[in-house]
């Protein structure tokens, strides 16, 4: 492979992907229209590298592509059987860790976790379901916080800090007890400054934060992933459909 200094690129699954200085492998791939599975990455927010779905293999090592800086020497593998098997296990763990009741969930069809499960041919939970007891927070007039669905991706945490300049959310607890906290004296969402128009209220990939009066308004066939896979549609919120 020859290196073109003016138009640098790296190899992703054998295909050349151009990048610009400072871009990560994830950013360059998405810009080029190549999809790498992910849940905690958002192009407008700082990369987090926590969900590990975007793992790729390069130089016999696994990297989170959302934090791996692109360079012209990279030969990256993403769509391999071994990596997708790992991704599937990650998604299965996310499912069994929470209480994801897809059949009646308002976010079904819009949910990126559900769409990722379809993408990775997940047919069952594989691991033991933990059925955790998680506190729900209905204290906010416009927004329902359903911690059963939360995957601790911290997109809302980052959106509130980086985009809304509010710091409404944080993660508390440790290990399996890790949970989303509302940063108010009472710990209730209703006592924070979260507004229904905030980015933080409109970024959750799994419907843990739901806008009350929007529930079930969108028919199933009009939902983001009703007919199109997440690898073709990308990680989109309902309002971001063209």
């Amino acid at each position: 492979m020859t290196i073109d200094i003016k138009n640098p690129s790296f190899l992703l699954d054998g295909e050349e992907v151009p990048f610009t200085e400072g871009q990560t492998v994830m950013e360059a791939a998405l810009t080029a229209g190549s999809y790498i599975p992910h849940l905690c990455f958002h192009p407008e927010l700082q990369a987090h590298g926590s969900c590990r779905l975007c793992i790729v293999e390069s130089d016999n090592r696994l990297h989170a592509s959302c934090t791996l800086q692109a360079n012209s020497r990279l030969k990256v593998s993403s769509q391999t059987q071994a990596i997708n098997k790992m991704r599937k296990h990650i998604v299965q763990m996310l499912f069994v860790e929470g209480n994801h009741i897809c059949p009646s969930c308002e976010f079904s069809g819009n949910c990126q976790l559900q769409a990722m499960a379809y993408e990775l041919d997940m047919e069952e939970g594989h691991f033991h379901f933990r059925y955790p007891k998680r506190e729900q927070d209905a204290s906010h007039n416009d927004i329902f916080l359903d911690r059963d669905r939360c995957i601790n991706c911290e997109l809302c945490v980052r959106a509130s800090r980086e985009n809304d300049a509010k710091n409404v959310f944080s993660l508390g607890g440790r290990g399996t007890e890790t949970h989303l906290c509302a940063n108010s004296a009472s710990g209730k969402l209703g006592d924070t400054s979260l507004d229904v128009s905030d980015k933080a209220a409109n970024i959750c990939p799994v419907g843990a934060l739901l806008i009350n009066d929007q529930s079930y308004v969108t028919p199933k066939e009009d939902r983001v992933y009703y007919q199109t896979s997440i690898s073709l549609r990308g990680n989109r919120r309902p309002k971001e459909i063209e």
């Binding site: 059949p103 009646s104 308002e106 729900q136 209905a138 329902f144 009350n212 529930s215 079930y216």
Partner: peptide, 14 residues
Amino acid sequence: EGRPYWELPMVVQR
């Protein structure tokens, strides 16, 4: 119990 009421038609039909 504890679920938001607008979920009821979707949940109880199951």
